[in-house]
Design a binder for these strands. Structure first.
Length: 271
DNA sequence: ACACACTCCTGAATGC
DNA sequence: TGCATTCAGGAGTGTG
């Protein structure tokens, strides 16, 4: 389940192979992703890749005349392949083929991802709704304090809302709340400024640490070389239902569904 | 405006 | 062992 650190890992992997290189063509085997693959992408050829960046969980490829916006959804992955005779496996939906024969291959079993074309990024109504980046200076206690006032939703739910803060998914919201010692069921507006500050620091720490370890591999995340991330070994609560809390070592980890997502927490360590 | 449920999808895990 | 059911979740959309 790619969240911000996984996308950042992929970006780091693919950047050196793509920037300044020319796309020969893009082979789309299945246009039926979350939304149809843009027709501009199907017809694209001989375009130079000027830059690549990440915004929230989107990867943005800047070409000469527009942008390709890629989202990996829940199960998408990107691989760099050095040899075009590589066999196609199930769910290999898109190949971006460079003039030097290197391929960026997109695989997505659940097809919740997307490949969309925009002439200008401001044309994207998906991007325009996205909140600030959690690793930016703008994501600070003042910002989150203001955003949590008059919010009755749980703090867990607020953290995975991309309109508030971009790129934190289910895993990292659970982890950050555990590290901050805040109960995920607390309503967002019940947090005081001191707790907000603690939470901000925990989120930044968790995300930076996850990036450092190459992301979290649960089922099918791997980096652009097909190598799994190591952060799952560092997870403190996520997926640890009924297991002993690693911090207090007295209580077991609780699990319950909160707004369609699993939430994990320790009653002793999180208040 | 807000809170919540529903929806897309496949594969792994679980249940009988 | 085998078949059927459940679960996982990013995030836009629809409903009350």
């Amino acid at each position: 389940m790619p969240e911000l650190p996984e996308i950042e890992t992929i970006l780091y992997n693919i950047k050196p192979y793509l920037i300044g290189k020319k796309i020969a063509y893009i082979l789309v085997r299945n246009v039926n992703l979350r939304w149809l693959v843009s027709k501009e992408i199907l017809n694209l050829h001989d375009e130079l890749i000027l830059n690549i960046k990440r915004k929230s969980k989107y990867l943005l490829l800047k070409l000469q005349y527009g942008w390709i916006m890629i989202h990996l959804g829940m199960s998408g992955s990107l691989r760099i392949l050095f040899n075009d005779s590589t066999t196609i496996t199930k769910h290999d939906h898109i190949d971006l083929v460079l003039h030097n024969h290197i391929i960026l291959r997109y695989n997505d079993p659940r097809r919740f991802g997307c490949w969309l074309w925009y002439k200008k990024l401001s044309d994207s109504n998906l991007l325009s709704k996205i909140g600030i980046e959690p690793l930016s200076k703008n994501f600070n206690k003042q910002y989150l304090f203001i955003k949590t006032r008059n919010k009755n939703v749980s703090i867990k739910q607020l953290l995975i809302d991309n309109k508030i803060v971009a790129g934190i998914g289910n895993i990292y919201s659970n982890e950050s709340l555990f590290i901050a010692g805040i109960n995920p069921e607390r309503s967002a507006n019940s947090l005081n400024l001191k707790e907000i500050k603690l939470l901000i620091n925990s989120i930044k720490h968790t995300l930076r640490n996850a990036i450092k370890y190459g992301g979290t591999t649960l089922r099918n995340f791997s980096n652009a070389y097909g190598i799994a991330g190591d952060f799952n070994q560092k997870l403190k609560v996520y997926g640890r239902k009924n297991k002993l809390c690693l911090l207090c070592k007295t209580s077991v980890i609780n699990a319950k569904k909160q707004c369609q997502r699993m939430t994990y927490w320790c009653d002793v360590c999180q208040h």
